[in-house]
Amino acid sequence: MRDSVLISPSILSADLANLGRDLKMIDNADLIHIDVMDGHFTQNLTFGSGVVAAAKRSCDVPLDVHMMVTNPDETIDWYIDAGADYITVHYEASVHLHRTIKHIQERGCKAGVVLNPATPVCVLESIIEELDMVLVMSVNPGFGGQSYIESTYAKLRQLRGLCEAHGVSPLIEVDGGVSSKNIKQVVRAGADVLVAGSAVFGADDPRAEVDLLRELGNRGLAVNA
């Protein structure tokens, strides 16, 4: 078990007209989560590689780029070139997943796989040993501000068990509906990276909220110790 949970605020909830300012407000975060949506894999359309490049210029926090796109193999390199530190691709969108993961790693990025709420953990059986990160969606992807899906707790426990069975320890990230109200339970179930959008950028003091979420998450780690 890691010494501390990692907090990855999502800029989906930031003020994009003042992105540099908002990133400076959360420079105590461990990662910056950037949701890339193409309007096909999800109904929403969000950030191109230019936003990743702007974020890279604006802060020193590693960039955690979540590719919600139907053609990840055609677009990944744009985001790596723009400065991504982590790239996660959806299992549901990746035809040649092993090839995609190895390509990301060969380009010098950490690579991960994302599971939608209806996708079972067992699909990772043959790839788990290659991964730097697994991102578990605790909402259906496409929009911020959704409520946490309660069945995610069981899924996280299953994923942690799979990792232990294979003797590996990729980062386990959770995205969607994470807040101060449930973060300890999410960590207890097996997560060690928490994405939070509206919970951080909707707070009166985003920097203090990042610290609070990390503190509460670490209390969940202490219970697991």
Rank of each mutant, 00 (worst) to 15 (best):
A199C: 09
I76C: 11
T70F: 04
D27L: 02
F143E: 03
V136I: 12
L31G: 06
D22W: 11
E125S: 09
T46A: 06
T100C: 10
Y153N: 04
D35T: 01
H90F: 06
D27N: 14
K24F: 01
G112L: 13
E74C: 04
N182F: 12
V52I: 07
V210T: 06
V200R: 03
P72Q: 06
F41M: 03
I11V: 09
A82P: 05
D204T: 12
A82Q: 12
S147L: 13
N182L: 00
E150F: 08
A17D: 08
L19R: 02
A111N: 00
P206W: 10
N28G: 04
I11C: 00
N140C: 05
N224Y: 10
D64E: 08
Y79S: 04
I127D: 10
A118T: 03
V186M: 01
D64P: 00
D211F: 10
V95K: 09
A54P: 09
N182M: 03
D15C: 10
P62S: 07
I149V: 00
D204K: 15
A17K: 12
L115T: 01
V178N: 09
S179H: 08
Q158G: 04
A118Q: 12
Q158I: 14
K155F: 06
A54V: 07
A225Q: 15
L162E: 01
C59N: 07
N71W: 11
G48M: 04
A225T: 15
I80N: 07
S13C: 10
P72Y: 07
D35E: 10
I7C: 11
Q146A: 12
A196T: 06
L159R: 13
V51M: 05
H90P: 13
V36E: 10
I127G: 14
L156D: 03
D35Q: 05
A93K: 09
S126E: 15
R99P: 11
G83C: 00
V210I: 13
E215Q: 15
S126W: 02
H166P: 00
E74D: 14
F41C: 11
Q43V: 10
G39D: 02
Q105E: 10
T88W: 13
A118F: 09
A14C: 01
A154R: 08
D81V: 14
W78Q: 15
M37P: 06
S179Q: 00
V61M: 08
L221I: 08
F41R: 12
A54F: 02
H166M: 04
